[in-house]
Structure formats: C-alpha cells, structure tokens
Design a protein around this nucleic acid. Structure first.
Lengths: 263, 263
DNA sequence: TCAAAAGTGTTTCCCATACACCCATGC
DNA sequence: GCATGGGTGTATGGGAAACACTTTTGA
C-alpha cells in the first residue's frame, strides 16, 4: 500500500492534515497507466529474439503485442508492475529491467487514454521458455529479422510484420532495439544476456555483442577491451577453471555491482 | 480530443465496435499523471540556472518545487502537457524539451498515487524571465551551486538546499543534471542554450560547454571539434559577418534539423 | 602600443584497428 | 597430425590533448 515518507515524517501541520483528509483524489479525470515490456534474449543460434503475446481479447484481438498490464494503483510503481508482468509471462526474476520511454498519445489505445511506460528486459540466453498460454493470451518467442520493409518477427512457420503489431508497439520495439545497439558499446548490458553470469568465456560475451551489433568483431581487440574495462577494474574476475569445446577457454565470474540497475 | 488511428481505419468488426462501446474505462482504479519540467538555462555570468516555483497550496506549501501540472486526459500527451506548463510558466516556446524519466512510487505524493513524467527543458541564455507569481505560486530562477552536502540553489538572498525541495524533486533534478553532463559531450544540447542560434560565435558555445562540465576547455581543440562535427558536415554554416567585443569573431548559423528532437 | 580575445600550427602520445601468429585440445 | 577455437604480439594510423604562437580589434 501507499506509504508516504512525507506523511510519516510528522512535520506537517494540523491545517495540512485536514487538507489531505479532505482532498478528493477524483477531482480530475485520470488516465490509465500500463507497463509494457520489450523482452529481449538471444537464442541457441545466437539470434536476437523477442517475446510477443497474441491478444485474446479486444482491442486488437488476435494481433501480436508486447506483454504488459495495468499498474496497480496505490500498491506498486510502474517498475514493479513491469517486473510482475515479466515474471508472470516468463517466470524469470533475475533479468535486467530498464525504463525505456513513456508513450502517452491520447489516441494510442482505442478504449481510453492509456499512458504506457515501456521497459526493456534482457533475459539470459536459454532461460526464456514460452509458458502455455490460456485463452486470454498465447505467448511466443520470435526471432528478429529484417527485410526491405523493416522488421519481421519469425517463429517456426509464423511470420509477423512489425506493422501488424497491436497499438504503437512497433515504435516501442524499434526504440528498444536502437537503444540496446547504442548502449552495448559502453554499457555492460551484454552481461545480462549471458547464459551463466557466474561462469562464462570471453567468446560467449563476444558472440552476444556480435548478435546485437550484427557484425563480426576482432577477437584480439575485444579481448583487450574486456580485460582492460572489466578484469583490471575488478568488476569481473577470472576463475581457475576452464571449459569449452576445443581448447578450453578461461572462465570468468561476474562479482560486483556490475549488474546494478541505476535508476 | 482523442483520435485513434485504429478506430478511423475502419478495419474493425461489428463485434469489436460493440466491445468498445460497452467498455467501462473506470473499471480499474487509475493514478494521476503529471508532467514535471526541469527548466535549465545559463545566466549572464555563465552559471547554470534552474527555474523553481514556490508552492502556494498544500501539500508542501511554501516549499520550492519543479514547475509541473496534470496531464489533461483525452486531450493531450504528457509531452504536450509539459510544453504547456513550460509556456505558462516562462512564456518560452522554442526550447528543447526532452523526456527524462518517469517516477511512479505510490507514496511520492501524499495526496494520492501520482505518476510523474519528468522532462528537461533547455532555455536559450537570456530568455528566461521570471513571471510575476500569483497567490498560487511564485517563480524564481536559481543558480545551481554545490557544497559538501550537495546542491544549493541560490537567488539573491534566498538559498534553498536540495533536500528541502518538495516531493522527490531532488532526485529528478540530480538526474537531469547528470544526464545533461553526459549528453553534452556527444549531443548538440548546448546549442539550445545559446542566446541566439542564428548568429553565434564559437566562444559562446564553448562557454556553455564549460559551464555544464564545470571545467575549462582548450580553445584550439574545441574549435577543431566544432568545425569537424558541425561545419564540415553542413549542420552549421558560417555567416559572412563578424561581431564581438575585442577582435570580432566569425558568427555561425544553425541551419538544418540539428535541433530536431527525436522521440 | 598594449590588452584581450580570435584563430592557427605543431608535436606528442595514446589507443583503436588490423593482422599475423602461436597454443591447447578432441578426434 | 590436423582442424578448431583460444589466446598473444606488434605495427600502424588517426585523432585527442597540450601548448606555443600569430592576428585582429578597441581603447
């Protein structure tokens, strides 16, 4: 429930207390607020993937959309709502969840004025399983591919073009991918997409960067940057342990607050 | 008023039309949504300044706060609300207005659950005048200064410490300044703070960078970077005109979509 | 002619990139 | 032994930083 620091502080006058008691919170018309989550991951073939749900009810019935839901007023922040949605939809708890942008055009939802706070979730490789959908929704993990006209979401035989998504979710997804691309160069986002943050090889991290940037990177240079930025600063430390298919690679461990999500 | 692309498209079934007509938008409890604006500028002495208003009513009566106000449901987006607020408070229309972050803790406002979408406005030097406040509020432009405990806002005899601001506005302001600092190095934000975007000297732009970064920059290097990034790319073009106190400086003009605000 | 600000040239050094090469393992 | 991926060393070029210098104006 709501818990205001201000109220607990006890520094408020009798007059103000009365004001607050008499305040009518429904004096003005209010919009709805939802959290929409762009859930990204990397599959076994090192392709960037996204979780979409197929809407079981109106509006946009039958269309694919981002998972999301209404914020519970007086009970949670939009961030908590996003976290809750993500967990309900995927079962994943230790994902990166970062606020992306707030969309608020009055006409973006045909039912009413809905303000949507969009988030980007980065899910470790291999841990995004589709949950069996009920009649309200059906979920699916799509590969993100491109053709001349833009993004095409692919999952087995199913193909969804970005312009057929519900609401303004096309823009939200585009923004999320764009942001991830530009962040990956100087922020540790890629670590969140590792299969195992406690035991990983440099090549795995490099593969994730290559997936997101959609280009091959030089082994030696990637390595140097990794050692300089993360190992030498103590953000990541080498394990005395090796693993890998051919010549076993040195494994690393992600100690530290490297993965802390700043607001 | 609300205008949904979806509804106008005419591609919706009878069934869906009925659904929408019968939909009860007040089925769930809703939060309020406000736009809060961190209005930054640079004064004649090249100091970073911020506009604050003194609250005339409860809650936080008498405290200094960011200008802001409720979004008008069904009529505008939060961005439009922010733009409106900014204009009402300052009379300025051609400012940079960029979304910063959305704050939504249930207890951040003692009256009710208020979701606040924060914006950063960058106002050209010299064009931020305080409007005479009525009894509802009083506005003032404060210099942003620092001491051991954090930010101190100063305006003549008035001193306001950041922890005495209303709501969670301390965090919002901190985030805005931090973001501006990191953006200034690679985004053209500084141009918005110029007194005159159509006729400016390199030294004026440099002074703004120095104000924001709080450090002296090398003339030659700043110059080279400016010519390379803006003049050679055609984003800015030299006028055949000079001006300045001592040796007159070459003036430049900001043609182009350099100032376009991407979403 | 002097101070102040505009503007130029040059040197140095770092570091990203490129690329050639060696190493450890499974088969 | 050889294919495969892991890991290393080094040469090079471009650009940021530092700084000494010249030019143009007002007073």
């Amino acid at each position: 429930m709501r818990d205001s620091e201000y109220l607990r502080s006890g520094q408020i006058s009798q007059e103000e207390r009365e004001f607050l008691e008499q305040y009518d919170p429904d004096r003005y018309k209010k919009p709805s607020v939802t959290a929409d989550v762009v859930t990204l991951t990397v599959n076994e073939e090192d392709q960037l993937c996204i979780l979409l749900i197929r809407r079981g009810g109106f509006p946009y019935k039958g269309k694919w959309a981002l998972p999301g839901g209404f914020m519970e007023v007086d009970a949670e922040s939009v961030t908590q709502a996003a976290k809750r949605e993500l967990f309900e939809e995927t079962g994943v708890k230790d994902a990166s969840l970062r606020q992306l942008y707030t969309f608020s055009d009055p006409g973006r939802d045909p039912r009413m004025h809905v303000v949507s706070v969009a988030y980007t979730a980065l899910i470790p490789k291999g841990s995004l399983k589709v949950r069996a959908g009920d009649d309200a929704w059906e979920a699916e993990v799509f590969k993100i591919t491109y053709d001349v006209d833009g993004i095409v979401f692919q999952s087995g035989a199913t193909q969804v073009r970005e312009e057929n998504l519900a609401f303004d979710h096309k823009q939200i997804i585009r923004m999320a991918i764009k942001r991830l691309r530009s962040r990956i160069k100087y922020e540790p986002d890629a670590f969140w997409l590792l299969r195992n943050k406690k035991e990983f090889a440099i090549s795995e991290l490099k593969a994730i960067h290559e997936t997101i940037l959609n280009e091959k990177l030089d082994t030696a240079n990637f390595r140097k940057a990794f050692l300089r930025d993360y190992v030498e600063t103590g953000k990541v430390k080498p394990l005395n342990k090796k693993g890998g298919a051919k010549r076993p690679a040195m494994l690393y461990d992600m100690t530290q607050d490297l993965l802390e999500e700043e607001i």
